[in-house]
Design a protein around this nucleic acid. Structure first.
Lengths: 348, 348
DNA sequence: GTGAAAGCGCTAACAT
DNA sequence: ATGTTAGCGCTTTCAC
């Protein structure tokens, strides 16, 4: 008895300190029902009598009760949290993917914890590990290259995993993306078809951009287009680096006539600006091709020819796949190829 | 006894189904200590004997134990989670703020749940409410305009709140940003000082951009610069809208000589492109001024004159303020004015 | 349809 | 320095 009293005292002290936050118990008392009924009213309203439901909802409104999802998550082993890790939040293409992903899962009552890998697989592993501690119901990743240890941890977590922005026959779970080799080849074919005879390729040094670059160069060679001048930048992408690499192409390699394929629209915009600033005409002297079809691509001057990737659909599809798996609904495909398309505009 | 057995059976069944995830208890058994000791080894290593610590760490490594932060959060009433809500994730300026915020809090072992308000205060309220259910230890917001109900809920949550990207003498808690009125005035002064005699201002219709626009126009008038042609776009910012508004300025308002102040660098880039596409010289005919000093601004052609905002510092400072408050360390200032600076380059 | 009871996996006094 | 104990606030059988 004495012990019980002491416990109550401690509890009271804590509540006082924490501002006596309202719990399911206080709502239950007010509504004259058991806590379990309040829980049901919230999570399975159809399992509760209409009038009881009304009383509970009234009590909730009166108290301003906000269910504690941490407690709920622990009790139900469903955190209603999805984890997402991207190379960089400040890269528009990933930001847009995250945006559509976040919106879609939010519609279903899930929230997103965000992590950033900085294009580094060790960091990715660390971030993934940290996020898994939050026991997310599913996880969203960019790319298919993860450290062995990272893959192991992901598998051990036994949750749905979506890999995106690439494609592979052997995904960890679901993969939704497109084929970078095919992009490189398609661009090579397109540029050759436009009659260009000299080629360069400026790519950021991240795994996927380099894959496109390699495939592009190989295909140009295979089709008799000759050697491709290769330039790379740090991962990420910026107008500045595009200008820089184009300047190098012109000054160090004498490239003033031909087509340049860039691994991102920002890089391509830089190449375009640098060419124009030096008095070269685009596409007359140099043709420029971007990648991504970001918002601005259609509105540069001249309008940018690029490769369109549906980033929004990619985020939404990954979300749908994870959502389906989380509730054990069928989601037959484990490999979703969203493809890409070449958008022919004026720069190439 | 029978009951105990039934319980154990249920537990066993669950573990089997869930893959028998390793808990603090299994680690404790393996290390030959009590669960509390494992907890201490993890959270207060200095409170544990070196050799015990070693045994525990070994057991952790052997089992691949990953502490359940959900359970930990519930037990300690510290979720080690920060919430962040921004108008749009796909807007570079917010993405960069989130990036520096996320990085800084991660260093201290916190994670970030992300929400998006879509520039709408009702949506903001909904998102904030949902995130508060996760019992974050602190929350990061953009702007100082929140619905009354939203403010109420924020206050009721009794957690540190950082408002950013604006300044006010009456923040909910801490505010770190800069003064939009002063920006408008400073730009007016700058442009007048450069000898311009006709003015336009293209602004996205979000609260802060409109504040800058109004202050700019008022200051131009006050200093005898005449009426300012005002154009607005939807919230957000894009090159496309910049071109569009500039086209309207030229065609509908006959604006072919003067200075245009834009509420973002993307908008300014659009204005620049449109002017150049129409054969107007920049800054000869039209001067263009942006806002934000995004990466690309220094590398457009001509280089863009703009207003520099330290987005990275803003995110990091907000993070520091919240981190300090969460651990009850002193953080004296409740209003942090990061200021801004005009970066005079070639377009204006 | 509703209530009682038993945890979810961890932390934090408290006792030793 | 370590173990014991009592919850954190909720969900979920299981009875009724």
């Amino acid at each position: 008895m004495d012990e019980v009293r002491r416990t109550k005292q401690r509890k009271a002290a804590r509540l006082l300190r924490s501002g006596a936050s309202v719990t399911i118990e206080s709502v239950a008392e007010r509504a004259g029902v058991a806590p379990a009924t309040v829980s049901r009213a919230l999570n399975h309203p159809h399992k509760v009598a209409p009038e009881t439901l009304a009383r509970v909802n009234q009590a909730i409104a009166q108290t301003g009760y906000l269910p504690n999802l941490v407690a709920g998550g622990l009790a139900s082993s469903r955190s209603r949290l999805f984890a997402a890790v991207v190379p960089s939040i400040a890269n528009l293409v990933y930001a847009e993917t995250i945006q559509s992903f976040t919106r879609r899962v939010r519609e279903k009552g899930y929230q997103v914890v965000l992590g950033e890998s900085g294009y580094d697989s060790q960091t990715e592993e660390d971030v993934v590990t940290a996020l898994l501690g939050r026991r997310p119901d599913a996880i969203f990743l960019i790319g298919i290259n993860h450290s062995l240890e990272c893959r192991r941890k992901l598998l051990a977590a036994k949750i749905p995993v979506a890999e995106t922005w690439d494609i592979t026959p052997t995904p960890l779970d679901v993969v939704v993306g497109y084929d970078h080799d095919k992009v490189g080849e398609a661009v090579a074919e397109y540029l050759l078809g436009r009659g260009h005879r000299a080629f360069a390729c400026v790519a950021a040094s991240d795994a996927r951009a380099l894959k496109r670059q390699a495939a592009f160069a190989a295909e140009i060679v295979r089709r008799g287009g000759g050697e491709v001048l290769l330039e790379t930048t740090l991962p990420g992408s910026s107008l500045e680096w595009g200008r820089q690499r184009m300047a190098a192409l012109i000054e160090e390699r004498g490239f003033t006539k031909g087509a340049v394929f860039c691994s991102s629209d920002f890089l391509a915009l830089g190449v375009l600006v640098e060419a124009q600033a030096r008095g070269l005409s685009v596409p007359g002297d140099v043709a420029v091709m971007g990648f991504g079809d970001l918002d601005f691509a259609a509105h540069t001057h001249p309008a940018m020819t690029t490769v369109k990737i549906d980033r929004t659909l990619m985020g939404a599809t990954a979300a749908d796949a994870l959502l389906a798996r989380v509730v054990d609904q069928p989601w037959p495909e484990s490999v979703v190829d969203l493809g890409f398309s070449i958008v022919a505009r004026a720069t190439a």
